[in-house]
Simulated scan of single mutants.
Amino acid sequence: MSDVLVFGASGNSGLLLALAAREAGLDVVALARPRRGDALKAAGVAVVTGDAFNPEDCEQALEVARPRQVVSLLGGKSADGRRVDETGNVNVIAACEAAGVEHALLVTSFGCGELYPLLSVQAQAMLGEAIRAKTRAEARWRAGPLTTTLLRPGGLSNSAGCGRWQLHDGADGSGAPLPRADLALAILALLADPAQHGRTLCVSGTPADAG
Rank of each mutant, 00 (worst) to 15 (best):
M1I: 09
L5T: 04
F7T: 03
A9C: 09
G11N: 02
A20I: 12
A21H: 11
R22W: 03
V29S: 04
V29D: 09
L31H: 03
A32I: 02
R35W: 07
R35Y: 00
D38K: 12
V45R: 10
D51E: 04
A61T: 00
A61L: 03
L62Y: 05
V70Q: 13
V71G: 00
G75K: 11
G76L: 08
G76V: 10
G81N: 05
A94V: 02
H103I: 11
A104I: 04
T108F: 03
T108L: 07
G113T: 00
L115H: 01
L118E: 08
L119C: 06
I131W: 08
K134D: 01
K134Q: 11
A137E: 03
R142I: 00
P145C: 04
L146Q: 14
T147N: 14
T147A: 15
L156T: 06
N158A: 14
A160N: 09
A160S: 10
Q166L: 15
A171L: 08
D172M: 09
P177Y: 13
P179V: 10
P179I: 09
P179W: 14
A186Y: 05
A189W: 02
L190P: 06
A195T: 12
A195H: 14
Q196G: 01
G198P: 13
L201C: 08
V203W: 04
T206A: 11
A208V: 06
